[in-house]
Design a protein around this nucleic acid. Structure first.
Lengths: 195, 195
DNA sequence: GATCGCCTTGGGCGATTGTCCAACCATAGC
DNA sequence: GCTATGGTTGGACAATCGCCCAAGGCGATC
């Protein structure tokens, strides 16, 4: 049980980040205070500014961690699908676990908003979005969807929009949106002119 | 130039609401303070709590006013369309005026978030969303789209999602998303089984 | 046992928060 | 000119904010 000082420090950093991912959805990004954070993490208030340069840096790191984790989880969900329709069902099913008002969904929206007021956060978030859409596009291309890049962009946006609206309308489940989104993936009846 | 007291009061109420619609996107819902609001409106700080029961009530009313105005504007945009594709183009074109990081877009997202923490706001917002989707669905039905209700719900969500992502990716214009969304409205190649 | 390095503590700093209120002003009816 | 009436003013209040820092704790190294 030899807990070195640096190991305890690492533990505290982790607890503070975990507390941030809890509190951002609960009280809102800009209402997460150093004292609230420290209390939730079970550490002394002064530790926040010892381990992190500022409150903004802490929140940014916590949010980006959750984002990366959620995106890779979503990608993993649709990996084993044999075709487009099956993949869409798997993707939507993996999202049925979120109500739109759950911590993860709210943290997503809070982060989108915070990104409009924090240049650094916005840059990193845009990069994550581009990478995710790129992988989604290549998956679509592999399974024969037309216009992979554009379709991926609209599908990603549509899914986020559904989560946004689901908080107001709990009936907006995968069963409800699946038929319409299937049409989105369908290879259009009119064939492409170029490329 | 006989300005009665009640007329001046009405004017102040209006200026405070206008200031709120400016400040919510600028600094974030929960960072709109009474003093900031009064300063922007050019009135004394004490007037906020004279004309409004609380800060929350003021923000709620301001946000809902903008919501109602924006939704009726969107409806008006697609009213003159002769068919589905033309209507979609008009709707998307009317949204090209918003960057995703503009005041109106940000106020929308801020309001969605605030609604998850303000029961009364959430209820009113859900009602507005239902009404809008209902009118959108009847428009879709009139022009021969299949599954009008579900399609309207997904279209409304997709449009909001596109606005959310546009802040991170300015290239997500109507020209980019139009082809994919047109497929969304297309009457599917497989015909409906029931109804 | 002394020293070093990292982590931790608890409170101080000035600024800002929502809400309230006593006092004040101007207009309308008489 | 007097009195209601409704609007307005600017400051008081306790609470909270981000950030900072002197002081102390403690395992590792010599």
């Amino acid at each position: 049980m030899t807990t070195t000082a640096s190991a305890r420090g690492r533990e505290v950093r982790h607890r503070l980040l975990a507390a941030a991912t809890e509190l951002i959805p609960e009280v809102g990004w800009s209402s997460v205070s150093t004292r609230l954070l420290a209390e939730r993490a079970g550490v002394a208030p002064g530790l926040v500014h010892y381990h992190f340069e500022s409150l903004a840096v802490l929140l940014r790191q916590a949010a980006l961690d959750v984002f990366r984790q959620a995106l890779s989880g979503t990608e993993a969900a649709l990996a084993p699908a044999p075709d487009l329709d099956a993949g869409l069902e798997l993707l939507l099913a993996s999202l049925d676990g979120y109500s739109g008002a759950d911590p993860t969904s709210l943290l997503f929206i809070e982060t989108y908003l915070a990104a409009t007021r924090d240049q650094a956060l916005g840059d990193e978030l845009a990069e994550l979005l581009y990478e995710f859409r790129s992988r989604l596009a290549s998956w679509l291309r592999q399974h024969g969807a037309g216009d992979p890049e554009q379709t991926a962009a609209v599908l990603a946006a549509a899914v986020d929009g559904v989560m946004l609206h689901r908080a107001l309308d709990p009936g907006l489940t995968s069963a409800t949106v699946s038929p319409a989104l299937r049409r989105l993936l369908a290879t259009g009846p009119d064939r492409r002119r170029d490329t």
